[in-house]
């Protein structure tokens, strides 16, 4: 799949491949998977916010999520595929972009490009590392195996005590610091990414674009505030 694929004979036989592996198609894939992931981080935040309603609320939410059973796996695999495609297609685009600009200018003039746009790959990769750690930390309990033993009673049933896990997890200032830093990078990523996906999907015009850009930033940094509120409150208010 070197270079742009549309001219390769394999893709030419399948219009859908020809579409998705064209320059704009690849971008569409990145944008659509990005949209899926934006949906995920929004939902995830709403779930997290149950933290502020106390242990029972949060543990109920976690239990209901677990109770989805196979559906949960569909969502998880779906998200994994989205992440995978998002990264693979970004890398394909990046490779082509490198090939198109072998010699840089002697004088660098960033012009109109925002810092959010310029750091997309970097923030994306760090966020990826964070997601890996985050999963290892709270989902797979690899970082602190003791998490596996946290149990509590909810309506008479014994369930995993997510609330306690979160509190213990974030009491470590390094974990919280890394978490907050990573979320700032997520916000960076989304500050450009959310507005950008409207542009890539062609859902904007001259009037709407600045509005989308503004709203995207509000959205990204609202997510940041929402997510960070949990470790911050744990660190400062116990």
């Amino acid at each position: 799949m070197a270079g742009h694929a549309p001219s390769s004979s394999a893709a030419a036989g399948f219009p859908v491949l020809r579409w998705f592996f064209s320059s704009l198609g690849k971008k569409t894939v990145v944008a659509v998977t990005g949209l899926v992931l934006v949906g995920f981080v929004t939902g995830h935040l709403l779930g997290n916010l149950t933290f502020f309603f106390g242990p029972d609320a949060m543990n109920t939410y976690a239990m209901k999520l677990q109770a989805l059973g196979p559906l949960l796996w569909v969502v998880r695999i779906g998200l994994l595929v989205a992440v995978g495609l998002h990264i693979v297609f970004t890398m394909l685009l990046w490779k082509e972009n490198q090939a198109a600009t072998p010699q840089k200018y002697a004088v660098k003039a960033p012009m109109k490009t925002t810092i959010f746009a310029r750091t997309m790959r970097l923030t994306g990769l760090i966020v990826l590392a964070f997601v890996a750690f985050h999963l290892a930390h709270f989902t797979l309990w690899l970082v602190n195996p003791a998490f596996a033993g946290y149990q509590t009673l909810l309506n008479g049933h014994e369930v995993h005590d997510v609330y306690r896990m979160v509190v213990v997890g974030f009491q470590n200032p390094f974990v919280s610091g890394f978490y907050i830093l990573s979320l700032a990078l997520v916000a960076f990523h989304l500050s450009h990414g959310v507005a950008s996906l409207f542009q890539t999907l062609g859902l904007t015009n001259q009037t709407l674009r600045p509005k989308f850009e503004f709203l995207a930033r509000i959205f990204a940094w609202t997510l940041f505030v929402g997510y960070s509120a949990i470790p911050v409150s744990i660190l400062f208010y116990g």
């Binding site: 549309p6 001219s7 064209s22 320059s23 972009n97 090939a99 960033p110 109109k112």
Partner: peptide, 22 residues
């Protein structure tokens, strides 16, 4: 036109908007 653009070896848009600025 998009296919021809791809074949010519142009890179992909990252919505940097440097084009618009110049």
């Amino acid at each position: 036109m998009v296919r021809s653009m791809d074949e010519a070896g142009f890179g992909n848009c990252s919505n940097y908007y440097a084009c618009e600025a110049v």
